[in-house]
């Protein structure tokens, strides 16, 4: 692994202070990924933001790994504008009721990203200020980006407008 000075110090600090929460550190296609225990994500995010100046949360992604264990993945893409470094944090969640703590207390911009992950994958975020769907209708019963969801959706699951006008 060839880590830059900033990232090396992040990894060193994490393995010193949060070694029991740190699962894996690896590099792929030029980016650095750190996999963590799901219950430590808020704590670690706070630490990295305050101690290492990763003040910009670029994105939060969901992924369906389609494995029998720890099926869902939430990926946090954070950037240090001062050091010009990008870092990815990951957590793996179980298929049954995937839940992770919200990081809206650390970065407020996480709110809509987390709502999108909830909308598309059904991952719930604890302590989120407004846990509603962001794209799909509120009464929609499915999570469209899960692998088992058909490409064209479930016929009749979203109502089309009536073709006879209201004549009130």
């Amino acid at each position: 692994m060839e880590l830059s000075e900033t990232l090396q110090s992040v990894v060193d600090d994490l393995s010193e202070n949060y070694s029991e929460h740190l699962i894996d550190v690896y590099q792929s296609t030029g980016d650095t990924f750190i996999r963590l225990q799901p219950d430590s994500i808020v704590e670690v995010c706070k630490y990295i933001k305050n101690e290492h100046h990763f003040i910009y949360l670029a994105d939060i992604l969901g992924a369906d790994r389609f494995t029998s264990e720890e099926r869902f993945e939430v990926i946090y893409n954070i950037v240090s504008l001062r050091d010009r470094e990008r870092l990815f944090l990951k957590v793996w969640l179980e298929e049954e009721e995937p839940t992770v703590d919200s990081i809206t207390d650390v970065w407020q911009s996480a709110s809509w990203h987390e709502r999108q992950v909830y909308d598309m994958f059904g991952v719930r975020f604890n302590n989120h200020p407004d846990m509603r769907r962001i794209y799909m209708p509120e009464d929609f019963d499915y999570y469209p980006l899960r692998k088992e969801f058909p490409l064209l959706g479930i016929p009749g699951s979203i109502e089309l407008p009536s073709s006879t006008p209201d004549t009130e």
């Binding site: 794209y135 469209p144 969801f149 058909p150 064209l152 959706g153 479930i154 089309l160 407008p161 073709s163």
Partner: peptide
Amino acid sequence: RCYGVVQGCDNFLP
């Protein structure tokens, strides 16, 4: 060709 888009507006318009 996906779940969110109506596959042709003739599904609800003449």
